[in-house]
Every structure is written in structure tokens, then in C-alpha cells.
Amino acid sequence: MITWRKSSHSDETGGACVELATFHGAVGIRDSKAPDTPHLVLTPQAFAALLTQAKRDELPH
């Protein structure tokens, strides 16, 4: 069983909520409002790179 946890940076007002899970050497990312829809799966290295880009505000808007 995969255990998803809400990101500590998610919007507490019920808006933008992201959940994360680790499994089989990967990191899963999903929308907490739509948990049964497909989710994104990244390697730990790709997830770390995504976080770095997000912290630097380098992601497309």
C-alpha cells in the first residue's frame, strides 16, 4: 500500500494541494482533490531538481 502525505507547502484553504509518496525508489506527486486520477512519478534525482527549480521560481507559469 502506498501512503500519500500532504505537502507542507500546500494551500491550507483547500486550494492548491499536492500529495507526495515514495515507493519503489521513486517519488509520486498527485492532486489531493483528484486522488484517483493519474499521478506523476519521478526519480528522486528528478524530484530534487524539480524542487530546486521551484524554489528558484524557474518553473514555467
Rank of each mutant, 00 (worst) to 15 (best):
M1N: 07
M1F: 03
M1V: 15
M1R: 12
M1L: 09
I2W: 09
I2N: 07
T3Y: 00
T3E: 11
W4Q: 05
W4V: 01
W4H: 08
W4F: 04
R5M: 06
R5C: 05
K6Y: 05
K6L: 13
K6E: 15
K6C: 14
S7M: 03
S7D: 12
S8W: 15
H9F: 14
S10H: 07
S10A: 09
S10V: 04
D11H: 14
E12W: 02
E12S: 15
T13V: 02
G14V: 00
G15A: 13
G15E: 15
G15Q: 15
A16F: 09
C17N: 07
C17I: 06
C17A: 10
V18R: 01
V18M: 08
V18G: 04
V18E: 09
E19P: 01
E19N: 14
L20D: 01
L20S: 07
L20T: 13
L20C: 07
A21S: 15
A21N: 05
T22K: 09
T22N: 02
T22A: 12
F23K: 15
A26Q: 13
A26Y: 03
V27F: 02
V27M: 00
G28E: 07
G28C: 06
G28H: 10
I29A: 01
D31F: 01
K33V: 05
K33L: 13
K33I: 04
A34Y: 10
A34T: 11
P35N: 10
D36E: 08
D36H: 07
T37D: 10
T37N: 10
T37E: 15
P38T: 06
H39D: 04
H39V: 02
H39T: 08
H39W: 10
L40T: 13
V41D: 05
V41C: 01
L42Y: 04
L42I: 02
L42M: 11
T43W: 00
P44T: 03
P44V: 04
P44L: 04
Q45R: 12
Q45G: 10
Q45W: 01
A46Q: 00
A46I: 01
F47V: 13
F47H: 05
A49M: 14
A49Y: 00
A49F: 00
L50S: 06
L51T: 13
T52V: 10
Q53H: 14
Q53F: 11
A54F: 00
K55D: 03
K55E: 13
K55V: 03
R56E: 14
R56D: 11
D57G: 07
E58M: 10
L59H: 10
L59T: 08
P60L: 02
P60E: 04
P60D: 14
H61E: 15
H61Y: 08
H61I: 11
